[in-house]
């Protein structure tokens, strides 16, 4: 399979460059789609750290994060032929699967117990999540760019992406209207994108 058609134009955009698409992930997925297990081994090398790290950040439990990472990577094997280069980078495709799986886990396991509780009133979780991202983001650029957001933009994005909260829950937690939360998420992501795109 040749290089995906969407790729050259994407490299012209700062965002595509900023996400540091491993140069051959999309091509590897093409080989994986045809059952190439060696190619999948390389996909594992490229993606197991972000997939596991993201799951760990969201579910906060190493055993569950490992399970999720396994499920996600097997899903990448299973559905490699479904990847559409014209819809976005291969990295983004894999991490979207990972994030959704992690969020689903958080919502289903917490639903019975404390979900009502945490939507009813801000729980200590919230400060913890917001705090940790400020101090533990490994990636220097993201950390710096996150600091460039307004506090509510940062909190909205952090609670949703790393905390697995819905925007309705974020609205409750922050005491901000639904419309404002939606706007802050979008504006915050745009500001983040512009900041990351401006990096050398």
């Amino acid at each position: 399979m040749t290089e995906p058609t969407g790729k050259p134009s994407r490299t012209l955009k700062p965002v595509g460059d900023a996400t540091r698409e491993p140069p051959d992930l999309a091509a590897l997925l093409g080989r994986v789609a045809r059952g190439d297990q060696d190619a999948f081994g390389q996909v594992y090398e490229l993606m197991s750290r972000p997939v596991y790290g993201l799951a760990l950040r969201v579910v906060r439990d190493p055993a569950q994060a490992e399970e999720i990472a396994q499920d996600v990577l097997v899903e990448v094997w299973r559905k490699a032929s479904h990847y559409r280069p014209e819809r976005g980078s291969a990295t983004s495709w894999v991490l979207t699967v990972a994030h959704r799986r992690a969020v689903d886990r958080v919502r289903s396991t917490q639903a019975d117990r404390d979900r009502e509780e945490r939507t009813a009133a801000p729980s200590p979780d919230y400060d913890e999540v917001a705090e940790e991202v400020g101090t533990r983001l490994e990636h220097q650029q993201v950390r710096r760019c996150m600091r460039g957001l307004t506090q509510t933009q940062r909190e909205s994005i952090t609670l949703a992406y790393y905390g697995g909260y819905t925007y309705r829950e974020v609205s409750e937690l922050l005491g901000v209207g639904l419309a404002a939360v939606k706007t802050r998420m979008r504006d915050g992501l745009i500001r983040l994108r512009d900041c990351l795109g401006a990096q050398p």
């Binding site: 965002v15 594992y44 972000p50 790290g53 993201l54 490992e66 993201v142 992501l189």
Partner: peptide, 24 residues
Amino acid sequence: LRETTTWLALAVAHRPPDRLRARV
């Protein structure tokens, strides 16, 4: 915007236990 969220994921990359590779 989806590509931007990818950054948020890459920023928290973490090495999984070695046994994961064999399992997968």
